[in-house]
Every structure is written in C-alpha cells, then in structure tokens.
Design a binder for these strands. Sequence first.
DNA 1: ATGTACCTTAATTATCATACAAGATCAATT
DNA 2: AATTGATCTTGTATGATAATTAAGGTACAT
Lengths: 248, 248
Amino acid sequence: MTGTLKKPQGDTATRRPRVMPDVTKAIASDIFSGRYPAGSSLPTENELGVEYGVSRTVIREALKVLAAKGLVLSRPRVGTIVCNEDDWNIIDPQVLAWHAPHALDDKLFDAILETRRAIEPLVAELAATRATLQEIADLEAAWRGMAGAGEDLAAFSRSDIAFHQIVYAASHNPIFRQIGNLIDAGLKFSLEATAVISLDRRMEAVAAHREVVEALRMRDAEAARGAANKILDLAARDLVSAKKLKSN
Amino acid sequence: MTGTLKKPQGDTATRRPRVMPDVTKAIASDIFSGRYPAGSSLPTENELGVEYGVSRTVIREALKVLAAKGLVLSRPRVGTIVCNEDDWNIIDPQVLAWHAPHALDDKLFDAILETRRAIEPLVAELAATRATLQEIADLEAAWRGMAGAGEDLAAFSRSDIAFHQIVYAASHNPIFRQIGNLIDAGLKFSLEATAVISLDRRMEAVAAHREVVEALRMRDAEAARGAANKILDLAARDLVSAKKLKSN
DNA sequence: ATGTACCTTAATTATCATACAAGATCAATT
DNA sequence: AATTGATCTTGTATGATAATTAAGGTACAT
C-alpha cells in the first residue's frame, strides 16, 4: 500500500545528471560555433580542465561522449581533433539539439523537412494499420490539446509534438520511432525559430491533424498518407513564411 | 587546405581505438543478449572492473558511452540501470551493429527494409537533381565493382554498400547521409545473414543499379525513384527467401 | 498503537589528484 | 634517407573524497 506513492512522471528519458553534461555541452557548442573548426585540435585535456575548472577525469568523460557521437577523435600524442562534419552523428537527438542553435542558416530546417516528407506519409500509413486502440485514444487526446490550446502557443507546441511522437510510435517500427524523437528535437527549435504562427494557420493545422486521427480510426492507410502530406504542406508553408520574416 | 591529404582507405568504419571499446562492446552485448534486461541494475562499477579486468576508470568511460547512446542510466546510490528498449538509440550505427547479432528474430530486418522503402526513393530523386559529376563518376565506379565481382561475394557486398553510400551522400542532405550509414550497418549483417544470393539474382541487382546510374546521369528524378523502388523489390524478395531458408 | 515527519546512515556514483604506461610525432644523428 | 631517441599527449591505474539519495530509524502527533 505504501508503495503506490509512485511519482506520475513516467518519462524515464528525461533524467538529468548533474554537472558533467554542462561541460560536454559547452565543448560541443564550441565546436558547433566554429571556435574549434573541423580538423582542428582541441586544447589538451589538462588545458580544457583548467579552462572549465574541472578535473581531467570530467574532461575525459565528456570527450568520450563527444567521440561516441562522432564529433571528435582522440589519439595518443596527437590530441583530440574535431571530426569532419560528415562524420558527426547529426541524427542523434542530443547532437541535433546542440547543433540547432548554431545552425544560423536554414539548411538544417530544410533537411529536416525533407526527412519528414520521406518518412511521415509511410509512418502514417503504417500507423493506420498497426495502431492500438490505446494509441488512437492517446492521439485524440493530444489532438484535443492542440485544438483547445487557443492562444497558448507553448501548450499548442507541446501537444503538436506529442501528437507526432504518438504517430511515430504507432508505426511500431523502432527505427521510425527513434527518427521521430529526432524530428521532434528539430521541431522544438523550428517552433521557436518560426516565431509566431497565426491563429487561423494553427486552426488549419488542427483540421489536418484531425484527419489523421480519423484515418487511423478508420484504418484507412491511404487517407492517413494524404493527411500526413497535408500537414507537411502546411509545415512547408510556415517555414517559407518564417524565412521571409527573418530576411526582413 | 593543406590538411587534405586524403588516405585511400575510404572506409571510416574500420577505426580501431585500443582496448576500451572492447569493454564497451562487451557490456553492450551483455545488455542485448538479455543478461542484463531492461530495468535491471548492472553490477557496481567496481564489480564490473574486476569482472573485465580493468580499472574503474575504463568502466566509467565505457558506461558513459553507453549512457550517451541511451542504453543505460547511472545515478548515485542507485547504480546503473538498463534503460527501456524504447529509449535506446537504435539509429546509432554502432548500437545497431552491437544489437544486430542478438536480434534473432527478423523484426529488425523488416524495420530496416521499411525505412529504406520510405527514404531511398526520395533520396534517389534528390540525388538525380543534386549529384555532382564526381559523385556520378564514383557511383559508376562502384557499379563496375558490383558488375565485375563475379563469384567474389565479399567484393560484391563491398561495392553494393559503397554504391548506396554514394547515393545517400549525393542527396546532399546530412540527415539522409547519416541514415545511409545506419542502413549500411544493417546491410552488412543482412548480407551475412541472408547467406548466399544466387548469381542470377545478383545480376538482376546489377541491372537495377545500372538504372540508377543512368537516371542520375540523365537528371531524371522520376526514373531514379523507379529504379530505387526496383532495387527495394529485389531486396525484399531476397529477404523473404532468406527467411524461408532459415526456417527450414 | 499507528502513521507521519524528520533525521541518520550507508551505498553508489561523481569528482579529484597523482602517477605511470603506451603510442605517435618530430628532430637530431648517423 | 633511414634510424633512433626524446618528448608530448592520451590511455590506464589507484586511492581518496564529495555528492546524492534510498532505506531505515526515531521522535512525535494522532
């Protein structure tokens, strides 16, 4: 009985260790910002230690993480060098999150949109045939969150992201689910970067998302694909608008 | 500029740090093999150290890498626990390579094939419009490698994988290129797992790949998409055959 | 007696400091 | 030009201390 206290967090993915990640993120940012360009050498581990005010142990573990994500490569005597951009693991959600703030150009957003164009129609199809009743119910709940957000843009974004994550998960393909996490990491910045989207545009999005829910309920793969494409058309339009806004 | 002394190795996957990765891989294998199921606790860092005959330093750095890939989560006092399968980063090529030998069922291959179905047609389209002349030349070279492999199955596989990697790169979308690396990591096992493919089937594949080369040369996006789909049909057929073989 | 809030304890990871080993670059030397 | 050795940086080992937190214990209120 006493054990039913159980915190309602449920989400095991969002657990934050203490200080180390800050150093990791700091070094990653220094790479993405161009302070350490591809091919260049980082300072020695000892130097990094004094710079960040931590021991060499912490620096090493941070570099180990960065190496695991393809950002750097350490070799004895020669030091730690920044890998070529081609090698770094941009499809790691964390890497994308570190990278996005420094990707001033829109190339990254374009790449993300292209990826969505490739994947989401098929994901929607698969979801239509494979989604569980529970997933459909969750999807409808997320949709209600979008529809009822009103002027609360943060709530809208949160529900929007939740919606997509459920669809990706409902494809019951672990690779798609993971790519969904990646897309969402990109979407978070996209939504911040594209600033405000007008209410009526959001309502259009709500309508398109509704179509997805209905298609899944009807197990209509074709309709699901169509609705997914419609959502992508809206996203593309918003991206274009955001670009124009930024260039002014 | 001066640093572009290009070694002819090309294959970046064969990068071999010293001993540490062995420990990392060993622990990862123990996770994927089911020795440490999701949610369970790993032994303490000290215990792991004596088990693998290395210092706690090495163990910690290995766990750090695994944590970076979402496989485990370390917390003070509670220890290191194995994350839920949903959390681990299956789209990391290294994770996939660690995972594949233990994925006894065919679900993983199916998932990979579905991913290819989603992406490769679009990638081929993009490559048709964006590939550089150099990339097209490289692609043709890879094709010649396939066509001239004869009975040398290893050479055929190598050229096949190189071919796909070039097409992915030619899409000039960093996300697709990375996903290409992932697919290739899967393909390596696929080709081993599906055992021998008969010569005439390989020749069919060669013909389909030729179509891709021609489509890129002609900048014909539609044809490129069609050829990509044809290749996928062949891959799907081979996968079915392999399944039948295995079940006997 | 029972439950609740608070405090203490202990176990494990997190960090630090130091030392030594191993590998690779560079330059001096033959 | 080749060899060899000096030297620098990462790789590993060891031991100690700090930080964190689950678990248990204690006092207190009900």
